[in-house]
Design a protein around this nucleic acid. Structure first.
Lengths: 105, 105
DNA sequence: ACCTCATATCAATTGCTGTTGATATATTAT
DNA sequence: ATAATATATCAACAGCAATTGATATGAGGT
């Protein structure tokens, strides 16, 4: 179905776009060793606090991380296998040729 | 080394950004079954010819595809394993936590 | 209550990049 | 030579998303 394909590629692209940011990649790499609070992340990635907040919001919105409030702090955790899952979907999509080709030169 | 890390993450992000476009993903998927000429790709992905030309230029610039002129036509070929290689690098980067964390809350 | 610290939100700006329309180049056919 | 086809280039434009600066929220400590 054409619509299904369209939606799928759009979703995939969206997830890729979340990964395709230097600061977010750094955040993810930082979270790979376990949960961190925002100030730890901000220190490690070296960006302003409000910018960090923004990127964490994006990562949360698209389901890459979860957050947990503990006292004054908010701890972020990378969802298990989430990056691997996204990358696997991309690889699958790139391998499966479902587009019709009717033209001919 | 801090500089090395910075450069690496920037390169990685750049490669991801190339993938993180719906039309380019479609092109790659289409090329996965073998070389195609521009008009075949344009027909399959359903975008204007000049836009296709632009995306192919991006894919070529970052080494994802090669082109070969044959008569009137230009055939594009997906570099073997290039997508897999990029995705593998991303996964590696995300797993390796090389960022220093000196702060503490 | 007040102050401080950790985090989030908001508004404004900037910069990039995908898209579009028009035109150029190159190759083949008549 | 001219026309037609395939592809590329160029100059805007448009829209989104990252960044920045200022402010708000909320929890603990004094």
């Amino acid at each position: 179905m054409l619509a299904t394909k369209t939606i799928k590629s759009r979703e995939l692209t969206q997830e890729l776009r979340v990964l395709a940011d230097e600061n977010r990649l750094k955040i993810i790499a930082c979270l790979s060793s376990g949960e961190k609070c925002v100030c730890q992340l901000t220190d490690a990635v070296d960006i302003p606090q409000n910018l960090m907040s923004h990127h964490l919001k994006v990562l949360k919105k698209y389901g890459l991380v979860t957050d947990e409030h503990r006292g004054r702090w908010v701890y972020y955790t990378l969802k298990p296998n989430i990056v691997e899952d996204i990358l696997a979907k991309i690889e699958l999509y790139c391998q499966s040729n479902t587009l019709d080709i009717t033209s001919h030169c």
